[in-house]
């Protein structure tokens, strides 16, 4: 009994799904929810992606990385399609992605809807899990992160903002 060969579409999905995010390299674009689909359209392998933020400067780099990964997997005739709907939110992050963020010292986003002023929803420290943390700055190294510090273990850390 022979194992069925993976289809072109499946091979393309595997290659695209394994592409790391350029700004959060511990996550793949599939785990991050940026990769929306891989289809065969008019002899093209069409990869559909969605931006996290409207102005995300990484989208061009991600598109190039996907094309390179597909070519390295021996897949030619590729094209990238950008879609906006349904809009990306942090709800698209898989549980595995959240666990990976925490393991890498980045507090994962909580539940959406906490947009109140001077928001004091606790963000647990990714190192010591204490809730005794405070926000230092609304924006950090990338648009998707804010900077926090833990008053228990005294370590500063990044928080992947709820969006």
């Amino acid at each position: 009994m022979s194992t069925p060969q993976p289809t072109l579409r499946d091979r393309a999905w595997s290659a695209a799904a394994a592409v790391p995010d350029p700004e959060l390299p511990m996550l793949t674009i599939a785990e991050l929810g940026i990769l929306r689909g891989v289809e065969l359209v008019d002899r093209f392998v069409e990869v559909t992606i969605t931006p996290t933020y409207s102005g995300c400067p990484a989208m061009a780099a991600i598109a190039l990385d996907i094309e390179r990964a597909l070519h390295e997997a021996g897949i030619e005739n590729t094209r990238i399609r950008l879609v906006l709907a349904p809009a990306w939110t942090t709800d698209w992050l898989t549980d595995e992605a959240r666990a990976k963020l925490a393991r890498n010292g980045i507090a994962p986003p909580g539940a959406r809807g906490s947009n109140c002023l001077f928001d004091n929803t606790p963000v647990p420290c990714p190192r010591c899990e204490s809730n005794a943390t405070e926000r230092i700055a609304e924006f950090g190294a990338t648009a998707c992160k804010s900077i926090w510090r833990c008053t228990a273990c005294r370590e500063p850390f990044d928080h992947f903002k709820c969006h």
Binding site: L84, A85, A87, C116, D119, E138
Partner: peptide, 23 residues
């Protein structure tokens, strides 16, 4: 539909722009 999609993308961003400016 195109404007509705751009709007859906812009809502969460404008929410924290508003929070930042209001604070």
């Amino acid at each position: 539909a195109a404007l509705a999609a751009i709007a859906a993308k812009s809502v969460p961003e404008s929410a924290y722009h508003l929070r930042h400016a209001a604070e």
